[in-house]
C-alpha cells in the first residue's frame, strides 16, 4: 500500500515539475520527486543510497539550482510556457515512448518476480565501501578514482567559467 502511495507521489511531483509555469515551483516539485524516490530506495533496502540521494540532490544540486535561479531576473524563469502545438507534439512523443516501453516490458513475463523478503538482506554499507575501493576482480577502484578526477575537473572548470574576467 505504502509503495503505491509513494508511486503516486513520485508521478505527481514529476508531472508538476515539468508542467508548472514558474521554474522556482518546478525546482521544488523536483525536490519532492527526488525525496520520494529516496523513500522508494528505503523500501528497496538501499538505505545508504537513499541518504546519498537526499544529501547530493537536495543538499547539493537543488540548492545550487535555486541559487542560480535567484541570481537571475529573467522573465523566462517565472513564465516558461510552451506553445500548444509544442505541448501536443511532446505529449505524443513521450506517450509513444511510454507505450513502446510498456509493450516491451509486458512481453518479458515479469509478474512472477516479487519483492524479496528481509531474509535475503541487501548489501551493507561496509560491503559497498569494500566494492568501491577493492583492487580485486570485482572492485571499482579505477572508476572511483576517475570519478574523483572528473569531479575535481568539473569544480575547477566551473570556477574558471564563472569567475570574473580581469578588466
Amino acid at each position: 500500500m505504502i509503495i503505491y502511495l509513494l508511486f503516486f507521489l513520485v508521478a505527481f511531483f514529476s508531472l508538476l515539475a515539468v508542467s508548472s509555469k514558474s521554474l522556482y515551483h518546478s525546482a521544488i516539485y523536483l525536490m519532492g520527486s527526488l525525496s520520494v524516490t529516496a523513500g522508494l530506495y528505503l523500501i528497496l533496502e538501499a538505505e545508504f543510497l537513499a541518504g546519498i540521494q537526499v544529501l547530493v540532490y537536495v543538499g547539493g544540486i537543488l540548492v545550487l539550482l535555486v541559487f542560480a535561479l535567484m541570481l537571475t531576473q529573467s522573465d523566462i524563469l517565472v513564465n516558461d510556457q510552451p506553445t500548444f502545438t509544442k505541448k501536443i507534439m511532446a505529449f505524443g512523443v513521450s506517450t509513444s515512448v511510454f507505450a513502446l516501453g510498456v509493450w516491451l516490458l509486458s512481453s518479458l513475463h515479469l509478474h512472477s518476480i516479487i519483492l524479496p523478503t528481509a531474509s535475503s538482506p541487501a548489501p551493507s554499507i561496509k560491503q559497498l565501501g569494500h566494492a568501491f575501493l577493492s583492487v580485486q576482480k570485482n572492485g571499482y577502484i579505477l572508476a572511483f578514482e576517475i570519478i574523483s578526477v572528473l569531479l575535481l575537473t568539473v569544480l575547477i572548470s566551473a570556477i574558471v567559467i564563472a569567475k570574473k574576467e580581469k578588466a
Binding site: S14, A17, S33, V93, S94, V97, F98, G101
Partner: peptide, 10 residues
C-alpha cells in the same frame, strides 16, 4: 519508465 517519459516531455 513513466518518470523517464515525463522527463522526455519536459
Amino acid at each position: 519508465l513513466f518518470i523517464f517519459c515525463v522527463g522526455i516531455y519536459g
